[in-house]
Write a protein that binds this DNA or RNA. Structure first.
Length: 718
DNA sequence: GACCTGCTGCGGCTTG
């Protein structure tokens, strides 16, 4: 039987109206699978690969043709990570459903209360919702969950890779498990994704008990030809920004006249590059077509840039951060430029997926490395050209199809605290036994054993914390502070957001700035692609008033460094030891690669792993990623050393150390439980960390951000 | 030496 014939009549009619001659391969396979089995499924294909239709054409047919489950509720529940994505998908699904009676309901913070209350009274059809809005339903309408989802046949999880074992993914997994408990049965799950490094981890996300039972449909071939070039630029003096200007000028020449994305690495650099490109357009008396796009810019400005990209009426290049990495529809772009090495190969792959989506068009990557001028006294990180080498390593890994896997060891105690409060709020009270069964036995917190559960719960109820309290019959209730926290709408998200200033010109908000730097009147600012002078700082309502100005500097946005995978650093070492010059390097980059390899040998890194630099300094080459580097760095700083980590290389200074470096390393190697924390180690990273004890915070850090078991091997460097 | 994501109920107002 042909896949098309399995689909419901109205769906077939819609396909004909589109003029499609046949279903795509993944759509046909998904149709057979969904309509002949009850298994969970992962559909993996590139951004424009027709994943949404692959899942929904058969799922909608199932709803239309087959008798439904008893009870009330939405038939299909789509979960998306972005409001904009939900809006996009909502339009597409409404179009597919035109010939049916099925309702399509978007549900997120921007959707009006009237639409929500209407859907709540008579839930049916397709619901498109964010994890946070689903959380809000548990908190506010805990008793209505069976009414809303009693006959739900499937969860469709879009951009599955953004969830997995990140804190927001653990949150969503917990919500799905709780929903299933609440309606008394399991629900089929269909995950959609473009970038899955290890598909078995995605399967374990959908069904941790029986991952091998989860089917997958991966688009065959489909990847278009990849063209790429890595160009390197060298800065002059210390403060000189000549290289970034040269990169901008090169981009100006190559990208004008078409639609492109420039990933600049940080919001500050986005503003800097966008400013340079705009002023160059002015200098050459050409209309500007380069616009900044990042999360701190106003929604209006961002939508303007997105619309310009989508409409394809005027050539447009967005200089952006990872805001434009995810799947909102901005059409096809000619080329993707990346300034500086990215932190993950997965992100690089996702970005590249934005280009070359039309048949016959190649995907084009323009990678730029910015290096400094060096001499014999330069720091080893500069002499080794770490940024350039990491770019090469990441492109190599991209080419062999590797990308990072999520971390499955992490306890996620912050999200755990959140879910404990949520389970209690859902029913107005819950026994400890029930919470444990819900979250740790059925839910995603399976590595939390009863003793750890008890110590978390004890701490939440301890004096001064007051999140939870126990009634006389043993039920756990929200304490005074717990009630206040769970009542406020800021509770629904599990991730933390910093306090911000609003930047205002002429009554209009240009965007926001995290409060990490002191801004004062008369300071010059580059923001939203233009130049400003600060008029006043209103501390009362965190507002900064600005007026246009002829000069400016990009502001500091703050942020923490990202985690780099072990495999990336190991590939960097391989690149140093290799002789080959990749074809995609320009002349400068090839020269710098040879120079970096010479310096690698000159420093002695070919044969040694500890290199003394002067009397008290040393370079430790551990060739592992951020988690392991940070662990050894912490263990050494607990012994009085000052340590900085550079891509698998530790810069160690021992002036105030308790002992020699060799002694410290052998002690770390021999110790059963090496001391790595001191009183000033910062362990508060996540939203609910302030409600955990130091001991619990240490356990949380050791489960995700540190790898204490690796210490003996890491310290074995002699 | 980084980036991103999300959010309810209700009081008070105007308007038909």
């Amino acid at each position: 039987m042909q896949a098309f014939d399995r689909l419901a009549r109205p769906i077939q009619k819609w396909i004909r109206s589109k003029g499609w001659r046949e279903l795509r391969d993944i759509q046909a396979r998904a149709t057979h699978h969904i309509l002949t089995t009850n298994e969970h499924l992962i559909v993996a294909a590139s951004t424009a690969g027709g994943k949404t239709e692959a899942a929904f054409l058969p799922l909608l047919s199932d709803v239309l043709d087959r008798e439904g489950l008893a009870g009330s509720g939405f038939d299909l529940v789509y979960i998306g990570p972005l409001k904009a994505l939900i809006n996009d998908q909502c339009k597409r699904l409404q179009d597919i459903c035109t010939e049916t009676e099925l309702k399509v309901t978007p549900w997120h913070g921007d959707v009006s209360a009237s639409i929500k209350s209407k859907a709540e009274k008579q839930p049916s059809g397709i619901l498109l919702i964010t994890p946070e809005s689903l959380e809000a339903l548990f908190i506010r309408k805990g008793n209505s969950i069976p009414h809303l989802f009693g006959r739900t046949r499937a969860f469709i999880i879009d951009e599955l890779h953004t969830f997995l074992d990140a804190e927001r993914g653990v949150h969503l997994r917990s919500l799905m498990a709780r929903l299933e408990l609440s309606i008394g049965r399991g629900v089929r799950k269909v995950g959609l994704s473009a970038t899955l490094g290890d598909i078995s981890l995605a399967k374990a996300y959908l069904d941790p008990d029986r991952p091998e039972q989860v089917a997958d449909i991966v688009a065959q071939g489909g990847d278009s030809e990849l063209q790429m070039q890595l160009r390197a630029y060298i800065n002059g003096g210390e403060e000189d920004n000549a290289a970034l200007r040269a990169v901008s000028d090169h981009l100006f020449d190559r990208l004008r006249g078409s639609n492109n994305l420039i990933f600049a690495g940080s919001r500050g650099r986005v503003e800097e590059v966008a400013d340079r490109l705009r002023t160059k357009s002015e200098e050459e008396r050409l209309p500007n077509e380069f616009y900044p796009h990042h999360a701190s810019l106003s929604k209006e400005h961002r939508e303007f840039v997105e619309e310009r990209l989508k409409s394809e009426s005027l050539p447009t290049t967005a200089v952006c951060t990872s805001t434009l990495e995810l799947g909102i529809d901005i059409g096809d772009v000619t080329c993707v430029a990346q300034i500086g090495a990215p932190f993950t190969v997965a992100g690089l792959r996702q970005r590249l997926g934005r280009s070359g989506r039309r048949a016959g068009q190649p995907a084009i990557l323009r990678q730029y490395a910015i290096e400094s001028r060096i001499d014999q006294n330069s720091h080893f990180a500069d002499r080794l050209r770490l940024d350039l080498i990491r770019s090469v390593a990441m492109i190599n890994l991209l080419l062999i199809g590797w990308c990072e896997a999520p971390n499955r060891r992490a306890l996620h105690l912050s999200t755990f605290v959140h879910q404990i409060l949520s389970v209690i709020a859902e029913r107005g009270g819950a026994s400890a036994k029930r919470i444990f069964a819900t979250l740790c036995e059925k839910g995603p917190f399976r590595s939390i054993e009863p003793p750890l559960f008890v110590s978390v719960l004890r701490h939440l109820g301890s004096p001064g914390v007051d999140l939870v309290e126990q009634s006389e019959d043993g039920m756990l209730l929200l304490g005074k502070r717990g009630e206040k926290i769970a009542e406020h709408y800021s509770f629904y998200a599990v991730f933390k957001t910093p306090e911000e200033y609003r930047i205002v010109h002429d009554g209009k908000t240009l965007g926001t700035l995290p409060i990490v730097q002191v801004l004062a009147p008369k300071m010059a600012l580059i923001f939203s692609g233009r130049r400003w002078e600060v008029l006043s700082v209103e501390e009362a309502d965190n507002t900064i008033l600005v007026k246009p100005a002829p000069a400016g500097r990009p502001p500091k946005f703050g942020g923490e460094p990202g985690l780099i995978d072990d495999r990336v650093i190991q590939e960097m070492k391989r690149v140093y030891l290799d002789d080959a010059i990749p074809e995609y390097l320009d002349e400068t980059a090839a020269g710098l690669l040879c120079e970096a390899r010479r310096n690698f040998k000159m420093l002695g890194l070919e044969t040694q792993r500890i290199i003394a630099i002067g009397e008290t300094k040393a370079l430790l080459a551990i060739w592992q990623g951020s988690v392991k580097s940070n662990t050894l760095a912490l263990a050494l700083s607990a012994k009085g050393f000052t340590v900085a980590a550079y891509d698998g290389l530790l810069d160690v200074e021992g002036k105030n150390a308790d002992c020699s470096l060799e002694t410290a390393l052998s002690k770390i190697q021999a110790a059963e439980t090496p001391r790595i924390f001191s009183s000033n180690t910062n362990l508060m990273f996540d939203k609910f960390h302030p409600y955990l004890s130091t001991e619990l915070l240490q356990q949380d850090a050791m489960s995700g951000k540190l790898d204490i078991n690796a210490l003996p091997a890491l310290a074995d460097l002699i």
